[in-house]
């Protein structure tokens, strides 16, 4: 099962590797990870998405995260109501004649063209996991040449 975990940590060097180390030491791959400063610059906020086959191991990881000296709080969003979003930037095959098709897509999703050059365009889009999934299927019809994603952000 896919879990979204948020971790509030001291904004210090080495903290990221402590957190990541807990997952890697147990053979867990982090599907996505987003880190940034909060309003209080001494605190960072991490959103971590991980696939956990074994819920017990995930419970252990959460407890171990809490044990790290630099971790302030840990929250597993999985069973909590929350809002999550991800930003994607995609470079797609695109010429002016594709405009109506793309506009039709963006009438359903939050996104836009941010750059258009000759036969490619870079589009940005924001959405939750499901929206991004559907959007990428749509964009794939144009042909995606490059794709970058921020990883998920989540808030209660």
């Amino acid at each position: 099962m896919r879990h979204t975990i948020s971790v509030l940590v001291e904004n210090k060097f080495g903290v990221l590797s402590r957190v990541a180390g807990l997952f890697s030491a147990r053979g867990y791959n982090i599907a996505s990870l987003a880190v940034s400063e909060t309003l209080d610059p001494s605190v960072s906020y991490m959103t971590i998405v991980v696939d956990a086959k074994d819920e017990k191991i995930l419970e252990q990881i959460t407890k171990q995260l809490n044990k790290l000296i630099d971790v302030i709080t840990v929250m597993d969003f999985t069973k909590k109501e929350h809002i999550d979003r991800e930003l994607v930037l995609a470079k797609i095959n695109y010429t002016s004649k594709d405009k109506p098709k793309l506009e039709a897509i963006f009438s359903k999703f939050v996104g836009k063209i941010v750059q258009h050059k000759a036969d490619t365009a870079i589009v940005e889009a924001v959405g939750d996991e499901q929206q991004i999934k559907v959007l990428l299927e749509e964009l794939n019809k144009f042909g995606i040449k490059e794709l970058v994603r921020t990883g998920k952000l989540a808030i209660e």
Binding site: G14, S17, I69
Partner: peptide
Amino acid sequence: VTGITRPITKHNYL
């Protein structure tokens, strides 16, 4: 050394 000992210390400092 802080990297090497990260998983075997309760905490470490550079």
